[in-house]
């Protein structure tokens, strides 16, 4: 083999390998990535059951229901719309009502979101970034201040306190 042929040969092999890898990457990118959506997006778009979705928002107050085993249902809200979610497994330590959460999974035909992964914030300083961005875009979040508007909770005027 001449030197030139050798070079062609090796360049050809490289192109082959890199090309194959690029093909793999493109296929994988079109099929196996998850899109972030807020509850409002999800209600509006109604994606099919094949599309993987990262649903981000706040866990609606009073919506978490455990059926005694490892099966949990709750609602994820962005204070405009909310979506019911079911999940089987262990919730993260910092999963709490009223806190940011990301659920990854698919939207079932009955419009219940079936999550296979649930991520919560990692500590009290942290809120999932996508959720913050989304809330910011709606004017519900300000840097340094956090959530500026919450579903109203009024203090009861007739307190059932210690004296009663």
């Amino acid at each position: 083999m001449t030197r030139k042929a050798k070079r062609l040969y090796s360049i050809g092999a490289m192109v082959l390998v890199v090309g194959a890898a690029a093909g793999l990457v493109l296929t994988a990118l079109s099929s196996s990535v998850a899109y972030f959506q807020s509850p409002t997006d999800l209600v509006k778009n109604q994606p099919g059951p094949a599309q993987r979705i990262r649903l981000g928002g706040l866990v609606e107050d009073g919506s978490v229901k455990r059926d005694g085993s490892s099966h949990v249902t709750f609602r994820v809200t962005d204070s405009v719309d909310s979506v019911p979610v079911t999940y089987t497994g262990i919730l993260p330590d910092l999963f709490r009502e009223g806190q940011g959460v990301i659920a990854e999974g698919t939207l079932g035909p009955d419009r219940v979101f079936v999550a296979d992964t649930v991520l919560a914030k990692h500590d009290e300083k942290y809120m999932p970034k996508e959720v913050v961005d989304d809330l910011k875009a709606r004017g519900l979040w300000e840097d340094g201040k956090g959530l500026v508007q919450k579903p109203e909770k009024t203090v009861s005027a007739a307190p059932a306190g210690a004296g009663s």
Partner: peptide, 10 residues
């Protein structure tokens, strides 16, 4: 401006 996550399947 789209948000996606690339995870283990990819």
């Amino acid at each position: 401006g789209k948000k996606i996550s690339v995870g283990a399947p990819f």
